[in-house]
Write a protein that binds this DNA or RNA. Structure first.
Lengths: 340, 340
DNA sequence: TTGCTGCTTGTTAGCGCTCACAATCTGCCA
DNA sequence: TGGCAGATTGTGAGCGCTAACAAGCAGCAA
């Protein structure tokens, strides 16, 4: 900066003003300085700037399990939104969300002077650990539920599950079975809850819940159980004709298990998923599912975080993003209501 | 730090030495200082540290298309490796790899004083643009090929394709068809090349290449063409009995198209993919594919980058990671060689 | 005792930037 | 012509840390 000032024949402060778009700089000086900056390829040192302003303009992202479609897309959305707002983001990916790992990640980020943290922590234990930790900066959760008083953003999982369940009931199924995700995931919980509420409100039976771990394999195993039940109850009463699986990957496993058992989808058993991964449209058969708007989720979470950082609010607001139902062949309408 | 020094009754420099694990500090002083640090919850300011040492200990990651399985996993691997080595990483995700976008991303990172950049740029155009740009710091490419003199790491795509092709030939197929990825992706190119070389060396016919864009939809369309060809040539000579699809997502589309055309996999047409996405094991039928070790890729790229940053080398080394063949039902062995 | 070595600790001077304030320079009116 | 407001530019200090050097102190041989 001193070099630029010398070459341009002004003081270093004037150069600083030009870089900061300060209003009181004459057009002539500004042009001259800009040109010298260009010519020298000068770039302002962000460490010194951070030191002087006490602002690092850096945000941290803590995410668990970024190999899954949901978290991965969310993190991408968050990073993009932060970049648009002029912040640097640094992401820390954890394999498991233990309190220790979270604390360590937070230390790591705090050590680099992040001004805020977006935590993509869909597990109940993770949010609780997060709430227990005393953070060195504002923290916003994504998919962290709103039970604890951390500000956050999430998709309306409950509504998504209701949409799916209502869609299946409206398609002529007497009731809808459910393959849930791990019980410690809030998303899983909310989806199960939405499903159950819808069934109760419609006066339908609430079958027992099968549980997987989001993986295709666990879906496959659940699917085998479902298939066994269908075959065992053939010819008797209103049986198992529709399944709402808590994510698309498990739905893929369910579809395979049903197929192997000789059951057709949707004729024998209709199947719906959740997430709308890119592959869902090409499953055998194409999967009815819920699409989430991850870009919105990212934008909203960054917006909320910056509101806290820049002191515009200090409430624990919780924003909710609406889901979208995507109907495909796996839940094609039944011609006659299930009565068999 | 001054506070810590005052409370501990030492100079700020001693505190600095304790934090930096300097050897010449007495055990007693060290313990006392450590305790005060703990008690005061002191954390050293990284901006000031960066300013004084002229090292930011920050690395940048530039990635294109992180929604695809490969790039996403690679980025995760890179970030984890960097964190293990004590570096902060900041990722910039681009939607398209134009020269402008790359230059901008680099400016963004340079502005924050990154000491090196890992570029996950599997497209030919992106690497070329990258090589043309004069970077403000060392750059290492991942999956960027080794045609240009940028140091880099990649999976041996060519070998992977050979393994798949040889596996299919060894399973009794007269030749192997190929659905390639976009022609401007280096990975795509290398896979096609490996496939073609293997066929030529084996003296097999080299059928025309079909091309997709990695998406399941494009695979589906390619699959329809393949199915049409199989049906048209029924009963005549050695036909189309095996397909190597350049990634698993497209393979899913191909499988669907074949199924819709009434063709069985692997009995009528064997199908193999590339990537081993978690879903591949549950495709109808489970997919033979190539697994890539993304963690290694990440570790190696960070290792290479740090070698450059810390001045241990300045060559444009290119590391190659070995692929692994995963055989599943989609390419089950033909009992009799294809002669029909 | 003197003088030397080796360990431990303190002092000083920046790193490159921004902030608060001071100084200068315009233009314009009395 | 003097004087004053407002725009523009310059000056000095300090953000929190580390590097380089200086100083103090023990232990030991001559």
């Amino acid at each position: 900066m001193t070099d630029v000032a010398r070459v341009a024949g002004v003081s270093h402060q004037t150069v600083s003003r030009v870089l900061s778009d300060h209003p009181n700089v004459s057009a002539k000086t500004r042009a001259a300085v800009t040109q010298v900056i260009e010519q020298l390829g000068y770039r302002r040192n962000s460490a010194a700037r951070a030191l002087a302003t006490r602002r690092t303009h850096t945000l941290g992202v803590i995410a668990v399990n970024t190999t899954l479609h949901g978290p991965a897309s969310t993190v991408a959305g968050v990073q993009e939104a932060a970049r648009d707002r002029g912040y640097l983001t640094s992401a820390v990916t954890l394999r498991t969300a233990t309190q220790t790992a979270l604390a360590e990640a937070m230390q790591h980020l705090a050590g680099w002077g992040v001004e805020g943290i977006v935590a993509v922590t869909p597990q109940r234990a993770a949010v609780r650990a997060l709430a227990a930790l005393e953070a060195p900066c504002p923290v916003v959760t994504v998919e962290g539920g709103h039970t604890l008083d951390l500000p956050g953003v999430s998709l309306d999982q409950n509504l998504g599950a209701r949409m799916i369940t209502e869609h299946l009931l409206a398609s002529g199924h007497a009731t809808v079975w459910h393959v849930a995700g791990p019980s410690d995931w809030l998303e899983s919980e909310a989806r199960t809850q939405g499903w159950e509420e819808t069934l109760r409100e419609a006066g339908a039976d609430v079958p027992p819940v099968l549980r997987g771990d989001w993986s295709p394999l666990s879906g496959y195993q659940a699917g085998q159980q479902l298939a066994g039940r269908v075959l065992a109850s053939r010819g008797r009463g209103a049986g198992l004709t529709a399944v709402f699986v808590a994510n698309d990957q498990m739905a893929l496993g369910v579809l395979r298990a049903l197929r192997e058992a000789g059951l057709r989808t949707p004729e024998d058993v209709a199947v719906a998923g959740f997430d709308d991964i890119p592959e869902a449209e090409f499953f055998p058969p194409p999967l009815t599912t819920i699409r989430q708007d991850f870009a919105s989720l990212g934008r909203d979470s960054i917006g909320l975080l910056l509101d806290h950082i820049e002191g515009r609010t200090d409430e624990s607001t919780h924003l909710v993003v609406a889901p979208e139902l995507i109907v495909r062949a796996s839940t094609a309408r039944r011609i006659a209501p299930a009565a068999e």
